[in-house]
Design a protein around this nucleic acid. Sequence first.
DNA 1: TGTACATCAGTGAACGCGCGTTCACTGATGTAC
DNA 2: TGTACATCAGTGAACGCGCGTTCACTGATGTAC
Lengths: 246, 246
Amino acid sequence: MSTIRGARERARTEVTAAIKDEARRQLAADGAAKLSLRAVARELGMVSSALYRYFPSRDDLLTALIVDAYGAVGETAEAARATPGGSTGPHTARWTTVACAVREWALAHPHEYALIYGSPVPGYTAPQDTIGPASRVGLVLIGLVRDAFLSDGLAVPPLAGELRPEAERMAADLAPDLPPGVVAALVPAWAQLFGLISFEVFGQFNRVVEARDLLFRRGAHDLARSVGLLDGPATTTTDRAGSARR
Amino acid sequence: MSTIRGARERARTEVTAAIKDEARRQLAADGAAKLSLRAVARELGMVSSALYRYFPSRDDLLTALIVDAYGAVGETAEAARATPGGSTGPHTARWTTVACAVREWALAHPHEYALIYGSPVPGYTAPQDTIGPASRVGLVLIGLVRDAFLSDGLAVPPLAGELRPEAERMAADLAPDLPPGVVAALVPAWAQLFGLISFEVFGQFNRVVEARDLLFRRGAHDLARSVGLLDGPATTTTDRAGSARR
DNA sequence: TGTACATCAGTGAACGCGCGTTCACTGATGTAC
DNA sequence: TGTACATCAGTGAACGCGCGTTCACTGATGTAC
């Protein structure tokens, strides 16, 4: 019976996927604001009301695309992390590998990127379903830092006194096993990393930056340093520890 | 005759301003995608076709709003720069003063901020008119750094060899009087600064960061350091120069 | 294995909406002599 | 100063469009006995 019911369910899964694929295609072509159920249905050779068997409203389709986009960029980051460049060698280089992968995904999927890291879609409020997938890239960055911390490849950044309570709160939430100073440096670095990507994807670098790869690598590397990751093998930890440890 | 013709022109100026004000109001309420000529006209008690005496199309109205938004944030930055906090004291503190002013403008005008630093509006391509106003905040940052450089308050960041040609090109374009190493550090810092602001304005810090003021100040300060600005009075330049000068 | 019934994907027509833009017009404001 | 004319802001009706969503329906697929 599971195989027979499976037939109907498999069809359902396939059509759902086809709808999302076509929606993603239109998103890539025209942006989220122009995404229309009718156009998607038209392109699939269905009548527009048929889509309501799959998504109760346009907003639910949008939500699915948002979740998928977070999933795609999260998976990209995780895959890069599993690569030799993301899991061996100097910790700053691992960070940069992951950062570059995220950047390349963003450049390859600018509208999906805009959907999740650009201006919120007007009138649309992200439901609970998105908050899990939204954190995957952040978790990868935390993982990188944790690895460095455990293998003595991290110089814990100093933590100003006034920031301590917030740092401890964030650390308790995000990474209880890491020193608060690291978390307080990591969160801004995370935002700044996406600042570099957004400026490039959204065109702010037009007529300003040409060698964007190089400049991004430099920016990403500096961010890695700012969270305390070390360039060399673990044994050279003392190089920077003097000035960076509290 | 200039006073008589002036009457008609003054009326024109006033109505144009009223249209932009109302459009800005609707932008703030619903976002750029929902901005509609008809709604603006309705709210002003005009018929929608009357707006075509003032703006040849909806896109032209949008462009005017974009130019105004760049103008507003640029003016905010320039005003902060002219403040005691922006023009005296340690150079890192001046930078932070300007950065905080920009952030506050963004938080007070999230939709206008999204219009210029968020996802590009679909189907809309920014015309030439926007590129001048778009650079005002950047020019303020360059001015801050130039001041520090001239008063010996700047430790020129090291410049990796592969980045040199691009750094020199950017320096020639943006600030021929500054060392390329500074410009190569300033451009990413500029992007990263807006990364911090965007993550806050666009809601990425929801459920993650609470003490956003503090974290922003810390991030902005670190960025100031990353472009070479010094914390102390000019005489302590040697503190950091050893590790930071090429 | 065969039949009666339930489920559910997809249809087609319709509702009501708001939009950007055009166009011929009216009437007030300004200009030239 | 007065008059004939030009300019131009604003009107009102209309065009054509695409949208999200609802609803009663058909017919194929699956289920229970």
